[in-house]
Simulated assay, not measured.
Amino acid sequence: MSMRRAIRDNGLSLFFLALFVLALVGQSIAGFFRNNSELADHGMATIGFGEFVTSSGFLVDVAENWQSEFLQFFLFIAATVWLVQRGSPESKKPGDGGPGSDEDQRIGAHARGDSPRWARLGGWRTVVYGNSLLIVMGAVFVLSWLAQSLGGVVVMNEENSMHGAPAITWLDYVVSADFWDRTLQNWQSEFLAVGTMVAFSIYLRQRGSAESKPVGVPHHVSALESD
């Protein structure tokens, strides 16, 4: 496979990977200067870039965004198994809720010759593979949430130390108002974004996008029903 074809065939993934890297680098640079500005304002010594990007403060900022994003997709993937929204290309058509039959899913005896191996084997491996997207999204969410909470308690205790307050435990932190204020700020924005995408896509179109129905399809018809 030529390099040009590889880029063309994976353009969507590569595009968002590039945006992710650029945004993360930009965040680290902006956060580095902001952090050192705050340290200087308090008469404290500034730190190097390497020390900043390995600090608990930077970990918290990154992890709290990651966990909200993966929670969003975890819930959306799980919800769309059973719940439908008539007319939305983000949903199956009404009446099709549920995991589907083995024939519909092309697993076990109904698998094709070129189906993934675990889809053809049956048993626990097919069960795991059939839920692998949800499992991985959920695992990344849990790990990101854990990283956020562990980094957050370190930052909180550093601030407490500067103000002469006692240190707190991880459990104290994860039930604190500070932790849930930061967490729920991200969650509510993600839920709003997904909900509006589902609703707006019933009535609005973007010609050529896989996330939109064809322009001339009626509002009440889903993309799957339009074929």
Rank of each mutant, 00 (worst) to 15 (best):
W82A: 11
V155P: 00
G97M: 15
V194M: 14
F58R: 14
P116T: 07
P89L: 08
D41I: 01
V215L: 09
A18Q: 13
I107C: 10
L171D: 07
G95V: 11
V198C: 10
S189L: 13
Q206N: 05
N36C: 01
K93L: 02
M137V: 09
D9S: 07
V153I: 14
R34S: 11
R106S: 10
W124F: 04
A167F: 06
I77S: 02
E38V: 06
E69Y: 10
V154I: 13
I7T: 14
L17S: 13
S189W: 06
Q188K: 15
W124H: 02
F74C: 11
G122D: 00
L134P: 01
S2H: 09
A223L: 06
G138I: 06
L134S: 14
G50N: 02
H110G: 02
F179C: 02
F70K: 15
P214C: 07
G57I: 01
S101N: 05
D178Q: 11
I202F: 05
L22H: 04
G31L: 04
I168T: 08
I77Y: 05
V81R: 08
Q185K: 09
F191G: 06
L59W: 00
T80L: 07
L133A: 02
V215A: 11
W187G: 03
N157A: 13
Q72H: 07
G123H: 14
P166A: 14
Y173N: 03
A63Y: 03
E158W: 06
L75K: 01
S149L: 13
F16Y: 14
L75Y: 00
I107E: 04
N186Y: 10
S68I: 02
D227E: 08
S189K: 11
P99T: 07
R205M: 07
F32Y: 14
L192K: 10
T80V: 12
F49N: 04
N160M: 08
L24E: 10
L204Y: 14
V128K: 12
W118D: 02
A167Q: 10
A40E: 15
N131E: 01
R106Y: 08
D9P: 00
P214S: 12
K213G: 02
S13L: 14
E51D: 15
I202S: 09
S91R: 12
G48P: 04
M44N: 04
Q206Y: 02
D172N: 11
F16N: 09
R86I: 01
L150V: 15
S212E: 01
S88V: 13
L171W: 13
G216Q: 05
P166K: 15
T46Q: 15
H42V: 03
G43N: 11
G152Q: 10
S201A: 15
F15H: 09
L184E: 12
E64V: 03
F179L: 02
G122I: 01
N35V: 03
V81E: 06
L146C: 13
Y173F: 15
T54Q: 14
L184G: 12
H163C: 03
D61L: 06
A167G: 09
L133Q: 00
G11V: 06
V62H: 05
F58T: 10
R125V: 07
I29F: 12
G57M: 07
V127L: 04
S2R: 05
V153M: 13
V127S: 08
S209A: 11
R120W: 08
G151S: 12
